[in-house]
Amino acid sequence: MDLITPGLGLVFWTVITFLFLLIILKKFAWKPILGAVSDREEGIKKALASAENARKEMENLHADNERILKEARAEREALLKEARDIKIKMIDDAKGEAQAQADKIIEQAQAAIESEKKAAMAELKKHVADLSIDIAEKVVRAELSNKDKQLELVESMLGEAKLN
């Protein structure tokens, strides 16, 4: 029975040992343990706040990325439209320039044709005049080879000159 019921001395020394252990723990271990727990709690709170801030920043970055992407798409569309407009303008300008050059070439060709035509007409007139002079010379020689015909021609010309 002595083993089951503790004696007063055992209780006393157990309480004193317990109190001594509590004082030693409070003085040397309790504060560092509570400080470590407090530091750990503070670290967890900071980590949670940092994670929340990171989440918000990621949301903001995502929204910014979406906005930038929309702006880039709009700018791409504007550039493509501008490129199409420039292409159409260049084609129209090239067509206009080609038409102007074609008109100029046709005009030059018509002027060359007109010049060649005038030159050919002048050459033809000169040739006709030369032929006429040759024919007239041959006729006059034939007429003037005979003395009687010469006198008759001179008299008829004098008669015509008086009448005029």
Rank of each mutant, 00 (worst) to 15 (best):
M121D: 14
L124N: 08
K117T: 15
A83W: 12
A122Q: 12
E114K: 00
E123W: 01
I113R: 07
I86V: 14
K118V: 07
L124S: 12
A100D: 05
D92T: 13
Q110A: 08
E107H: 12
A122R: 15
D93K: 01
I86Q: 14
Q101F: 02
D93R: 02
Q101T: 02
A98V: 02
M121Q: 13
K125A: 13
E82W: 02
A122M: 12
I88G: 05
A111N: 09
K89S: 04
K125F: 10
E114V: 00
A102I: 00
I106D: 01
E97A: 13
A122N: 15
A119M: 11
A98S: 02
E116F: 07
E123R: 15
K89I: 04
I106A: 04
A102N: 01
I88Y: 04
I86P: 06
M90F: 09
Q110H: 07
D103V: 15
L124C: 05
K125S: 06
S115K: 15
K81D: 05
I113D: 02
A112N: 03
K118R: 14
I88L: 15
A120T: 02
E82M: 04
Q101S: 04
K118A: 12
A111Y: 05
I105Y: 03
A119I: 11
A100L: 04
E114Q: 00
K87F: 09
E116P: 08
I88K: 01
D85K: 15
K125Y: 07
D93E: 13
S115C: 03
I88Q: 08
I105A: 10
L124K: 13
D93M: 08
A94P: 00
A94Q: 04
G96R: 01
A102L: 06
K118D: 11
Q110E: 11
A120W: 02
E97N: 11
I105G: 01
L124M: 13
M121Y: 08
Q110C: 05
A100R: 15
R84G: 05
A100W: 02
E82Q: 14
A94E: 00
M90P: 06
D92S: 13
A112S: 03
E123Q: 15
E82R: 02
A112K: 11
E82A: 14
A111Q: 10
Q110F: 10
K87I: 03
I106Y: 10
D85R: 14
E97P: 04
K89V: 03
E123S: 14
E114G: 06
A83R: 12
A119K: 11
K125N: 06
E123Y: 01
I88W: 00
E82T: 13
K104H: 11
K117H: 06
I91K: 00
Q110D: 09
D103S: 08
K87L: 07
K95L: 07
M90D: 10
Q99I: 05
K118L: 13
I88S: 11
K125D: 11
D93Y: 05
M90A: 12
E97M: 04
A98P: 02
A94V: 06
I88M: 10
